[in-house]
Design a protein around this nucleic acid. Structure first.
Lengths: 396, 396
DNA sequence: CCCTATTAGTTCACAGAATTTACTAACCGA
DNA sequence: TCGGTTAGTAAATTCTGTGAACTAATAGGG
């Protein structure tokens, strides 16, 4: 099993079938309510092919037929939707502050969730704890009533490109952990697709895959929490997440934006993380690891020094957005992560900086929309669940 | 005709055939001398399929059979190579300092070239001039003896993602130029694939496509000339060049690396281009547009101020490499563009900065190789030629 | 020298996928 | 009620890659 989906190298008829199945499925995902005829138009497949594929997908519990809707004269088409009743996926995030779990259906709707605020200690006991919670989650009625496609885990650090292994999680002190292997020792977990991904990549994937509204062609998701990470997703029918040579794509927290700035724990000076990140703000505010950053900032919101600190952080975040825009040029930027709890005092200056420093590289310069996810508690967990679905859909 | 190749959305049998043809072709390109059996092993196709595809490609002038080479016992395999004798591609770069043209064969070998140092004025007369030179190039014996697959043009600015149109070339003063349409009015140009691309993307593509040695999985090519651009390429059989929502991927010259730095012509402060770029150095050295930057720097190499200037520029370039590494994490970085003429005084500090500021994100941190292209006169022109070949190979 | 083992490449009947064409189904308006 | 129009299905057809059997070419051993 390849650890990350790679586009086809060479194809047999089997692959062709799988490709078309995925294409039809994603067309319905991106345009809920389309008819078979619509799909044929959009994808270039013939009506006959679409008919056959849809039949198989309906039978397999991936699609359901909806109401008829007439469009002008002629026989009305039968609308198609993802079937939210038959399958589900489990997603879990191992975060610095605790474990977060969701189960969701093919529509990305959360069927059940669980937030366990105890910070992880060592990998082994964390795996045991996570397995218990997953088993409990699976026993929820909404979950147990559905077939489970598999299980995904999001981790706060880069995942190796060679194997599904967490290379390094500085904030957990974990190195080269094969977390899925630890989980596999626990009983009661679902069979199917298992995968491990970086938290920012997972969140980015989920926001892209389950996007509500007109789907963007590509997004960059900035995860601002203890550290700063970023995930990039693009692609119509097969969303692609570039991971890079060592899985370091999106480690923008360590891009240097102030060469003579203060020292970062990575050894360099002026990394973005020294200006905007949970750890930098905590350090500046002299908080211990127990205290909540959000509460502390709220309590001291009137202090000019604190306000200036948050404002500087916001501007740095805006600068990161700008640099990302000029490097990756996504059609949408999404801001998420626990730092978003700081709200307008942080995001205001960020958006201000971003919009006021747009330059004239393209005259029209239709500004790139920036979406802010205020409550991102389950974003990453739902994101890996989305990845499980996407992977499972490839080899139905 | 789609303006940029997009991976398959849905597939018919035709597409499948085309996919396998391209796969075989690129396998030979990346591993010259493979046998049919090798290809079958590498691609997963069966011997029968490979046999058929190879036969077609040999007949079409894309592949040629080489010598036998035995490997242990058994019948020796017949080695396969790209056929450099039957086809050729034309590539041209419209640069700030003049026109550069090449004709090359499927192996990326330059059959003929032409460097016209007169700076372009308006689009119309430039198209006329370029067409004359292209016709002359095509009359060279090595070129006229081959079938011409098509023609590519590289331009110093972003190309629209909607149509093959140059959106903006600040250094030429051109806006929204449909250069291919202007060329199409001229007689004597080859039929086939025509395309337009950004200079940095084209160069990046060429370096990746015609890479000598073990092919890297992905590269980022930094084009340091009048401005700073960057192209990214990855993918095995179908090299993919992300272009972004507005074709601005790789506009790293306008990433901000010194928020309080000096003002850039784009309106912002502290863009990378204010530290490393032809225009910034010329401005700092008070050169008029006629003078050669290389000559001027060589002449004043002893002045401490000049040395410091170049060193600072080199360090900024190194910082750009580092930020690119953390954002895109390519498996190889390539430095090119006219600024490379400045040689060690520029590249030394750049490499120093890059290697000495590697951080510990991955313990092993096998350093990413940086390749420097000292003479990049025809890099971009050859790059678009490579794109013509790649595009033509898709629908043989 | 011949014979066997081994690997390379081709041939041909076959299975499977999408297509083509023709058809039925369902709705609208006159 | 009857054309006109669009949606969806069914059967014959075309084209693809596959698998197994075949031929080809070499090395090594007796």
């Amino acid at each position: 099993m390849p650890h990350s989906f790679t586009p086809p190298s060479a194809g047999d008829l089997n692959y062709l079938k799988s490709l078309n199945r995925s294409t039809v499925l994603s067309t319905v995902r991106r345009h809920p309510g389309v008819s078979r005829a619509d799909i044929a138009l959009r994808t270039g497949l013939t009506k006959a092919t679409v008919g056959g594929v849809v039949q198989a997908l309906v039978k397999g519990g991936w699609l359901r037929e909806g109401e008829l809707h007439a469009r002008g004269g002629g026989r009305p088409g039968r609308s198609l939707h993802l079937d939210g009743e038959r399958h589900c996926m489990l997603g879990a995030e191992v975060g610095v502050k605790g474990l977060r779990l969701v189960a969701c259906n093919l529509l990305g709707e959360v069927l059940a969730s669980c937030h366990c605020p105890a910070p992880p200690t060592d990998p082994e006991s964390t795996a045991v704890r996570l397995a218990e919670l997953l088993v409990a989650l699976r026993e929820e009625p909404a979950v147990s009533a559905r077939h489970c496609l598999g299980l995904g885990v999001a981790v706060p650090g880069p995942v190796s490109t060679r194997a599904p292994i967490l290379s390094l999680a500085p904030n957990l002190g974990w190195v080269d952990v094969d977390f899925l292997a630890l989980l596999r020792r626990e009983p009661g977990l679902p069979a199917g697709t298992w995968l491990l991904d970086n938290e920012a990549n997972a969140a980015a994937f989920g926001e892209f895959y389950f996007f509500e509204g007109v789907p963007p062609e590509s997004i960059a998701y900035i995860s601002a929490g203890s550290g700063i990470g970023c995930g990039v997703v693009s692609g119509d029918h097969f969303p692609v997440v570039p991971r890079g040579h060592q899985g370091l794509v999106g480690e923008i927290g360590h891009t240097v934006i102030q060469p003579d700035g203060s020292r970062c724990h990575c050894g360099n000076r002026g990394c973005a993380e020294t200006l905007v990140s949970g750890w930098a703000l905590r350090e500046a505010l002299d908080l211990d690891s127990e205290a909540s950053l959000g509460d502390a900032v709220a309590a001291r919101a009137e202090e000019p020094a604190v306000r200036a600190l948050i404002q500087r952080a916001g501007q740095a975040l805006g600068l990161l957005l700008l640099n990302l825009h000029h490097t990756l040029n996504p059609s949408m930027l999404i801001l998420g992560g626990s730092l978003m709890q700081l709200g307008e005092p942080l995001t205001g200056p960020a958006l201000d900086y971003f919009t006021s420093h747009q330059n004239d590289l393209l005259r029209q310069s239709q500004s790139v929309p920036v979406k802010i996810i205020a409550d991102g508690t389950f974003t990453a967990a739902r994101g890996v669940a989305a990845e499980v679905m996407a992977r499972s859909a490839i080899d139905i």
